[in-house]
Write a protein that binds this DNA or RNA. Sequence first.
DNA 1: TGATCCCGTAACAATTTCTTAATGGCTACA
DNA 2: TGTAGCCATTAAGAAATTGTTACGGGATCA
Lengths: 225, 225
Amino acid sequence: MANKTILVVDDEKDLLDLIEYNLKKEGFDVLKAENGKEGIQIAKEHNPDLVLMDIMMPKMDGMEAVEKMRSDDQLKSIPIIFLTARSDEKTEVEGLNKGGDDYITKPISTTKLISRIKAVMRRFDETEEEVNRLDVHDLSIDKDRYIVKRGEEEFQLPRKEFELLYYLASRKGKVRDRQTLLNKVWGDNIYVVDRTVDVHVRKIREKLGNHYIETVKGVGYRFKE
Amino acid sequence: MANKTILVVDDEKDLLDLIEYNLKKEGFDVLKAENGKEGIQIAKEHNPDLVLMDIMMPKMDGMEAVEKMRSDDQLKSIPIIFLTARSDEKTEVEGLNKGGDDYITKPISTTKLISRIKAVMRRFDETEEEVNRLDVHDLSIDKDRYIVKRGEEEFQLPRKEFELLYYLASRKGKVRDRQTLLNKVWGDNIYVVDRTVDVHVRKIREKLGNHYIETVKGVGYRFKE
DNA sequence: TGATCCCGTAACAATTTCTTAATGGCTACA
DNA sequence: TGTAGCCATTAAGAAATTGTTACGGGATCA
């Protein structure tokens, strides 16, 4: 895997070099810029995975640079960690802060810096990760969120309906008889009349439309292939 | 930091020893069991961080053991990696597969096994680096000061409420069941009735309004996406 | 040593979800 | 076209789950 690239923007050259040294030791590629303007330019060219940005700088202020980045389509989703000299600058940063970003007060402990960087990166990676999501047809069944989406529409199904749908969808095309469904979705030693499945199927169809779950007469149900 | 403990359940003694050897070399603590029944018993006693479970076993089948674990409040959130002899057993495993689990087909490459274990653990280990401040919706949750802000308003939440809110907010959109919340917010071996979570959720809602934390009936709570 | 706040628990109310059972419809086949 | 078998649909009551409130024990701080 290619190394992650980090752009460091700070007007103190010594600090810049120090950070570079430490980041490289950790296996990151490092880009440097000494002011906001330069930072943006380099970011546009190289598309770094993360930006470490000092807030107080000459030329273009870090704050201003961040605002520019946020309104630039190419750059807006790059995570930024702010470096602030005094902790009361926190307040200033607040307005700019998006989801996974972070800020760090100088002076910086290297280990802390590294671990923050890794944390922010991990968080960003995971957002992209499709861990518990099942995409079938035009549906997106997210077990982590217990939500079914179709485009922008969100359906909040009750638990049994959700799990039944999930079970069938994860076995797309395969027929399961009612008893099997009861065992797998309801649980093994649960005593429930198997017609119950019908009702749940109906409720799912009622909400999502009836073209997802197919009835196989005399056998059971299946999620449409 | 204490070593992570892994429980290995397999009826082949030689394999058990081999795996133990390799895991220990990697710095894990290892527990062993030769059948499902014994496995569950040991799991209950030692609360391992991960379970490596063979599917085909005498006494209590691995499948059965897993189901038992899944329905036991204390054990249900322990990640499980399945060992299966033939790859067509995969299908069966699917039904049991929850969240971050994984399966591996025998024969096992040690490196692969280790890397899977680490991957699953990483996924489960939500003790990620924490951010000082989280901005979600119109809230700003400041872990440094244990204060929640909404615009100019400041809310001083008691510790548990704050930590619960923080935990949920930092996993925006993801549902967590009460047991998980207790483990993550209260601590692993704390014995508290899980309805306690409800009360804390209510208190948070009372202060911040009830549109932040959503209830997913039969499952748990989640911070609104 | 009060006063106050926080935490966990229990009890009951409110709500949602699940299950059942009853009815009617459809299809296949004789 | 009659009949049997299977499924869809509905509504109502049961069951499960959560919301809400109140209370007592502890910790904390003046």
